[in-house]
Design a protein around this nucleic acid. Structure first.
Length: 274
DNA sequence: GGGCAATGTGTAA
DNA sequence: TACACCTTGCCCA
């Protein structure tokens, strides 16, 4: 689940369910026992997201910082909360609901200046109203690193993960291996604008759908299809299958430790990866 | 029941 | 580049 859209949904959900409420906090698993004790009985004042980082501000000027990593999960439900199932790092209860957090990469309390430092080390987030894509362009336009790697660098752009990375490059026809400095400014602006659209849709829908109406199975006269991560996409985890647009075989290759997916036909065929 | 992958990141070498 | 870490779910026997 967790690319930036998921975290922004989680922030909104926390604000809706717990905003202005006194919360109870506990760590059934025990690994966040001390932190839970500090949060317990405080009022949630603010719920924010920057990239993949969730920040919950409490009335003692402390912030809960959660990063889900690759498989962290939240589950929300109305009270009464049953005995926790599995490894629940943190359970927040308040206002008639509870939230269970499992498997986070990070779950810690931060002081305001540490929160400031966190924001400072993250690049612009296409989902934040205050996002300024220019610093990202400055990094990209000076870099020999591939655009595929740059998009995954959270200090360049915050919130993009492996799915949005693959899909936005496909949609914009950009070969993943293209060095940042070879992108034109127009190309970058199109990528950024598309990320804003795609990720905003993701927040609304709670899943990643990137296939344009003209390429849906119905529009193309093909049988309906469900991608196994839950959204409709062009290339992510579709290696070996025909491209939905040009029918070339979708390819995959590990890049900086992650599986990268792309279509050799649609994405700047003049520049292949490897 | 074991093995492994997964929408991620930080550290060490 | 490799590995460590967090947890679940799915595949295979």
């Amino acid at each position: 689940m967790p690319e930036g859209h998921t975290i922004h949904r989680l922030a909104a959900e926390h604000g809706r369910l717990f905003g202005g409420q006194t919360v109870r906090a506990e760590s059934p698993q025990g690994r966040f026992a001390a932190g839970a004790l500090r949060i317990d009985g405080r009022v949630l004042q603010e719920a924010d997201a920057h990239g993949k980082h969730l920040l919950l501000g409490f009335d003692d000027d402390r912030w809960l910082h959660v990063h889900l990593g690759i498989y962290g999960k939240y589950a929300f439900a109305p009270v009464p909360a049953p005995a926790p199932v599995g490894e629940v790092r943190l359970r927040l209860t308040g206002g008639g609901h509870y939230a269970d957090l499992r498997g986070p990469n990070t779950c810690e309390l931060l002081e305001p200046d540490e929160v400031k430092a966190l924001h400072a080390r993250l690049g612009p987030d296409p989902l934040r109203a205050d996002a300024d894509p220019d610093p990202a362009w400055r990094r990209i336009s000076r870099s020999r690193t591939s655009i595929a790697a740059l998009l995954m660098d959270q200090s360049v752009v915050a919130g993009v993960g492996n799915i949005y990375r693959a899909e936005v490059l496909f949609r914009q026809g950009v070969a993943p291996a293209t060095p940042g400095r070879e992108l034109t400014r127009e190309r970058w602006e199109a990528i950024w604008a598309d990320l804003v659209v795609l990720m905003s849709d993701g927040v609304r829908a709670g899943r990643i759908d990137t296939v344009r109406p003209e390429h849906t199975p119905e529009a193309m006269g093909r049988p309906p299809r469900v991608d196994d991560h839950g959204g409709e996409v062009y290339v992510y985890r579709r290696s070996g299958m025909p491209c939905l647009v040009c029918a070339a075989e979708v390819r995959t290759e590990a890049l900086v430790g992650r599986n990268l997916f792309w279509c050799p036909g649609c994405q700047d065929p003049g520049r292949r990866l490897a």
